[in-house]
Design a protein around this nucleic acid. Structure first.
Lengths: 342, 342
DNA sequence: CTGTTAGCGCTTTCAG
DNA sequence: CTGAAAGCGCTAACAG
């Protein structure tokens, strides 16, 4: 097992030409199974592994996928990152994470540098970057394929993979409504992207169900604070009102956890006095008490779909939009609404 | 701005030889500033970017650093990952994350495949993988440089970067002791690695301070549940005892948060009835209520040190062990111990 | 200080 | 079904 056997070494040992070895390695057909076996034996004996750089140079492929993501360490992002790594590996590709904190400043230039340097075969855009026009333009200009995860704006602008957010919000609305909740508060994120959109979708679903517009209250949170803090702040605001909502939706599980934390601490019982729902089905959802009723999106599946879109050539400029089903996960944070109070 | 200008194109436009361009690109000296400027102008005009693959092939360098990490999405790991990415970028390297969930099964083989395929220039080992003998052996066998983050076992086995855990535990012990705490419980993780070691260090510090051995109670948690859940479970156990500790240490902020959550929910006030301390100074520490007294380790600095160790050749097989200082972060989760109770 | 030559390890033509 | 030649874009080693 020499320190690094080359293709030629394998060829010599197997008594064939380099090209034949290459064929076997790349799984091309038109190789007699007998020679193929001989080559495979030689490969095994020498512990041969193709040299990525050489292969890249010859094929002008990079075998690299980029993941452009903000600097956020919560469940959703982590899950998306690791699922993407796995999805790439399944196809013999490698994933490089390009973290871009601040789209405003020189970060965009630095992203451009990296994109041109790495020659990614495709790029996955994580929200809210999937809605960032500057990044979209950059990619278009560089002619790099990309797929947008859960975009909320610029429809038909590139391939995308989303979960069925509308369906999720519908499920949540039905669930809360059926429990008798009529005063519902929505904590969403400000800006133009999925999390922000969730509030609208939930409101629409509730209105359609017959909920009074005035009984739906929404609070837009900013990105400065952690979702947990934001949740606490929202709870503080909402629960100090004379007329309190009987249920609160948090744009993410972390926010919902913040709401619960604040409520418990101030003597409310959940779900007796307040129902809380989240989004993501993160590990937190099961870890806190009471465990969170929430919506699960199939992140691993979404990552796999994204890589597939990148790899499989799109049919003649057709924009492809994959939508994955979501699931309502019922847990202990929701219960019957108590008879209305002042 | 052609779609991909090569070194030769730049050379032609600048009226110099390819080698000279190469020199400029790689910042070698011995280039007259006049020619250098001409080359730089040509590079700018053509939007030239070196081709990684070609460069790799020629230099037999990969410009790639691997980060071997378990599948864990909490603050510590996220911070370590993104800090490492940045640290690599600062040196013109790229970081590839190799996630290895289950060291037992074929994961080790798959890791070997990847390591040999990618030809990393070095590998960063995240705990508890930094203590995994199988992985260490593999790396030694493949002759790949590595640096262990916060190893707890196999001392002197490769370069390492740690935070000064003993100092951290000392600070925590002093803090709790000075507040009058005499019955202290330690929630640690089972196994042989940093988090497990913390309990011992804290116990030692407390003993030295004069704490009765019998008044230090420790609970070892397993990896099955989330840290938050583990924290809740520990709290449930400890707080149901006749003789309750007046302070609890959680091996990580998440665990401490679990303790706090459980305690609040069961009518205890913090820190009036119970003081809680954590480790990491994660975002959670500031987000929950009361905010957590904890130890901060300088993760970004540690990542930078790790990359530095990988890049700068070690002096003649000397094992280098970098230890970074930690910091006690005082917040609201600790307070004076109440006069002892039954 | 600058240029020339050769080749990194693989894959692509294009012939057998 | 298999092989020979040429080259991907860059840099090493040597010359000048």
């Amino acid at each position: 097992l020499s320190h690094s056997a080359k293709l030629d070494d394998v060829a010599r040992l197997a008594g064939v030409s380099p090209k034949t070895v290459s064929r076997v390695v790349n799984g091309e057909m038109h190789v007699r199974s007998q020679t193929k076996e001989a080559v495979e034996r030689a490969i095994a004996r020498l512990g041969y592994r193709p040299n990525m750089a050489a292969r890249s140079l010859a094929t002008s492929r990079s075998f690299l996928i980029g993941l452009v993501t903000p600097h956020l360490g919560n469940f959703y992002f982590h899950e998306l990152h690791s699922s993407s790594i796995r999805a790439c590996r399944e196809r013999g590709l490698h994933l490089l994470i390009e973290q871009i904190t601040d789209v405003a400043t020189g970060a965009l230039q630095s992203l451009e540098d990296n994109l041109r340097h790495m020659r990614f075969e495709g790029v996955i855009l994580v929200p809210p970057i999937s809605d960032n026009p500057a990044v979209l333009d950059l990619l278009d200009r560089l002619g790099i394929k990309y797929v947008r995860i859960s975009p909320a704006t610029h429809p038909k602008h590139g391939d995308s993979v989303s979960s069925d957010e509308a369906q999720g919000m519908q499920l949540l609305a039905e669930h809360l409504w059926s429990l008798g909740h009529r005063h519902i508060a929505l904590a969403t994120l400000e800006g133009e992207h999925v999390s922000a959109r969730r509030g609208d979708l939930l409101r629409d679903a509730l209105l359609e169900m017959g909920c009074h517009r005035k009984h739906i209250q929404s609070v837009a949170l900013n990105w400065r604070e952690t979702a947990l803090q934001a949740g606490r702040r929202v709870a503080a605001t909402l629960l100090s009102q004379r007329k309190r909502p009987s249920a609160i939706f948090g744009f993410a599980d972390e926010a919902a956890a913040g709401v619960i934390g604040y409520a418990l601490q101030h003597g409310l019982q959940i779900p007796r006095d307040l129902s809380v729902v989240g989004f993501d089905d993160s590990d937190l959802a099961q870890s806190i008490w009471p465990p969170l009723t929430t919506i699960r999106q199939p992140i691993a599946e979404m990552a796999r779909a994204a890589v597939a879109l990148l790899v499989e050539r799109s049919p003649k400029g057709k924009v492809r939009e994959v939508v994955c089903p979501v699931e309502l996960v019922l847990r202990g944070s929701t219960g019957l609404a108590r008879t209305s109070r002042t």
